[in-house]
Design a binder for these strands. Structure first.
Lengths: 330, 330
DNA sequence: ATGAAAGCGCTAACAG
DNA sequence: CTGTTAGCGCTTTCAT
């Protein structure tokens, strides 16, 4: 592969001039510039980003690390959508993106990223403190998505669980539901707690509260959610509405309702969270909270760029507003 | 950040010895090794992969480039699953993975990867020849997933469309269906043709053929598939079975059947392809072809490693066997 | 506006 | 087994 030295030789200039032609064209005489540009083309030249990065200390590369517990990792209806947005926004600025999944067994993977000198890291879902510290300690910009650090000056992008669950409860109450239950996905403790609190608080606003037998945790699988929903809906005095903290869970709940001979939303209203492709695949189509993952991804990338530019970030947590998408299930 | 020079100074050895301690520990006296290892720990040393790569000419990094037309790019039920597997298999070997989406507007994104000296590239879905050539010309190992190149010595990993569609047709014929239609997703021309031919050929095996009015193309959206299915199923003498070339399309078809008052599978059997999460979300659960995306991802990564090791690859196309997953819709 | 020289952090012969 | 030397391809002062 051709290097700037080759170009310099062929064009009869010094390699510094060639370098300058690419990094600071304004400082090179137009005729020289053209000469260099032409020979570069001829030689099919392509700068070596590694060599450049060694000097500039910038690789123009971010990493997206998602915790392995969130299965599936990539096609996860929530994190997958965020990754989608992150890919687009990093690429849009000419940056590259490493994708990697963390997990107990894979400590080396983040060491690798450290060695490869990434300019910033997005952690999705839970982050092991040790891993987080490795980056912070080396002053590599970091942003957490859907989680928060003890370290109060680490940036976080969160979905507005409060608002989202609130919108759902508002909606259900408006539809005259007073016996509202919830199936809560066993996500990270952080998210679990937020949505749980949000639910209780939203009910309280209306002077309502949920019976204990209306509330249960479930793995975010159709199977487990189905069983859980059967328990809740099969009681003697079941709730008339069931809030689910993600769409997969809502699917399981709908199946459970059907198998118990209950009509959705006639006998029991069911709502989801994520507004994923499952919502429209299901019958009835699921009323769900759109977490606005596009904005979440964009916000995460933005946080990284702002840190790179040395900006002192005052508001370190960005809570992205949700939107209730009304469909048929509630 | 500490460098090998720092370690050398503190440990009182030369930097070559330090370097050797990491790259070829066997060639260093155990006591020196330990000394170096300790000081490295103290100084919180971490090798700079960039500097190393400049010399070794190996970045230990692959890229996964998916064509933008395949929307959604990441959460795409088919390519997303493959990416999932690719992430795992590259990570398992200590390699890193760039993820990037290509598309008409984003030519620079692959230039960036070129500059960053990736060791290999996986192209998912369609690949623009120009882009492909840029890599081939620089002798960077390449593998295509779900597409093929004019260049007969470019590795490809394909799903066994023939086998997959064949399994579906076998299954339907065994269930006494003789009037079988198909809704074909407007994927790349390559995949479209393969599945189309596979369908015709599978019918032929049984001396059957599909009426023209039983066959139609559709965008891989529920909406478009719904409309298309309404046309086919709303005819005066509709088919009793409908093969769909992906799950999203099957969902649309099922909805269409329902809206026409047809029972699935009683009045019309419907099958999908991908065995994605939609299959079990849907009611009835979709009978679908599992393309074995895990193996596809693994095969792609394997092709890359084999090329890196300089192996002369004789069988350049790997066709991954499918498996029919029987559920309720057919 | 251009060139010469120094050096980023590391590996890889080659001596010893 | 270890140290010396010479770069990898590039940017960046500092002169000219």
């Amino acid at each position: 592969m051709a290097t700037i030295i080759d170009i310099a030789r062929v064009a009869g200039v010094s390699k510094s001039t060639v370098s300058r032609a690419f990094t600071n064209p304004g400082a090179v005489k137009p005729r020289t510039l053209e000469l260099i540009s032409n020979t570069a083309q001829e030689l099919n030249y392509m700068p070596n980003a590694l060599a450049r990065a060694m000097i500039t200390k910038k690789t123009e590369t971010f990493a997206f690390i998602i915790h392995k517990e969130q299965f599936p990792v990539i096609t996860n209806p929530f994190y997958g959508q965020i990754l989608e947005s992150v890919v687009e926004h990093t690429g849009g600025k000419g940056y590259s993106l490493y994708i990697s999944s963390s997990g107990s067994l894979r400590e080396y993977s983040f060491n690798t990223l450290l060695q490869k000198q990434v300019d910033g890291v997005i952690f999705a879902s839970y982050t092991e403190p040790k891993m987080l510290q490795s980056f912070l300690q080396r002053h590599i910009p970091v942003v957490l998505v859907n989680s928060r650090s003890e370290d109060t000056d680490v940036c976080s992008v969160l979905t507005d669980d409060h608002g989202g669950i609130g919108q759902v409860v508002d909606y259900l109450v408006k539809k005259k539901h007073r016996d509202i239950g919830i199936i809560e996905g066993r996500f990270t403790q952080f998210i679990y707690n937020r949505r749980h609190q949000a639910f209780l608080q939203a009910l309280k606003k209306y002077g309502l509260e949920s019976k204990l037998c209306y509330m249960a945790a479930a793995d975010a699988t159709i199977h487990d959610s189905y069983n859980t929903a059967c328990d809740i809906l099969g009681g003697t005095h079941p709730p008339t509405a069931l809030v689910c903290t993600n769409d997969t869970i809502a699917v399981g709940a709908i199946k459970a309702a059907h198998s118990l001979g209950l009509k959705v939303p006639g006998d029991v209203a069911i709502t989801g969270y994520d507004n994923s492709s499952l919502c429209t695949a299901c019958e009835p189509a699921i009323t769900s909270v759109d977490a606005n993952t596009r904005d979440m991804g964009a916000a995460a990338v933005d946080f990284l760029f702002r840190q790179i530019e040395g900006e002192e970030i005052s508001t370190v947590t960005e809570t992205v507003k949700t939107r209730l998408v009304e469909r048929e299930s509630a």
